[in-house]
Design a binder for these strands. Structure first.
Lengths: 143, 143
DNA sequence: TACCCATGCTAACTTTTAGTAAGTAAATAC
DNA sequence: GTATTTACTTACTAAAAGTTAGCATGGGTA
């Protein structure tokens, strides 16, 4: 019984040795964590994970749901997430094809973190846009 | 056979209205949140934010710290984060140039979320790599 | 029976983005 | 006087993303 996904956001201030080690690892050039992060934090990866948080979806449902994805990119992103074990794919051998995608256990965990990030951003959009405008102006104004 | 695809949002665990609105916004094609997310979750954006969590750093310090960044990409990513208000840039008009980068308040907030994601991934790297290997094998084996 | 649509992809091609190498100013060290 | 250091920018090239077209095939429509 290992439930309790408590790994998420502990350690408010003090940085443990472990964390520093991990961080060092992320910083070191060619490490696999960067690949994983790339799949998860990519333009479509994020939206797929968030989208699947509320249950199983078919390929074309996802396509319609996520504004602006091409079929190619959707398929590619889903395959990456599947290979990493975050998404489960079940294909029913019928015609026309019927394929269902859902989050695995670890997929749910990481999707929560990604969603937290996305939610934080959505709340701050106006703030950020204001800052951007001011920043542009400062550049233009040639301060 | 119409199969009624209307199931989309079962609202599993009390998803607030606000959350659904935000989500809808992220899903809608051209919204600014995607841009913000892109800067923050990009290959180098992530590493810059995490790197700056432990204090101010100069450009070249960051460059040495983050394995594999080119100067161009570092400058570009820093500018994006600065424009969005996550990173503060202070240039001392000396020769050779001296420029310091640090997180703003909102930068610290978002960096915490990004770091949580990165930490989670680092912990699960072995697990994910195993899954990838098995996945490849399944493809090869032609199951 | 002929025709068209829907689904979940993949392959070929184009555009955008990332990455690489070189250049720049100007003080200081040798 | 040549080299070095810093924080960039500017061309150029490689890689990734995006676009369009195609495929198999059962069911619905005519």
């Amino acid at each position: 019984m290992k439930m309790s996904v408590n790994v998420t956001i502990p350690v408010s201030e003090a940085e443990t040795l472990t964390e520093r080690l991990r961080r060092g690892n992320l910083f070191a050039g060619p490490c696999p964590s960067r690949d994983i992060l790339k799949n998860v934090s990519s333009r479509w990866g994020v939206l797929i994970l968030i989208s699947l948080r509320d249950g199983t979806h078919r390929f074309s449902e996802l396509r319609r749901r996520i504004g602006g994805v091409s079929e190619k990119m959707l398929a590619q992103s889903l395959q990456a997430l599947e290979a990493d074990g975050f998404v489960q794919r079940i294909a029913y051998p019928v015609v026309p094809p019927h394929v269902e995608y859902s989050l695995t256990t670890s997929g749910e965990e990481i999707a929560r973190l990604v969603a937290a990030l996305a939610d934080w951003i959505e709340v701050r959009v106006p703030e950020v846009m204001t800052h951007r405008a001011e920043f542009e102006e400062r550049l233009q104004g040639g301060e």
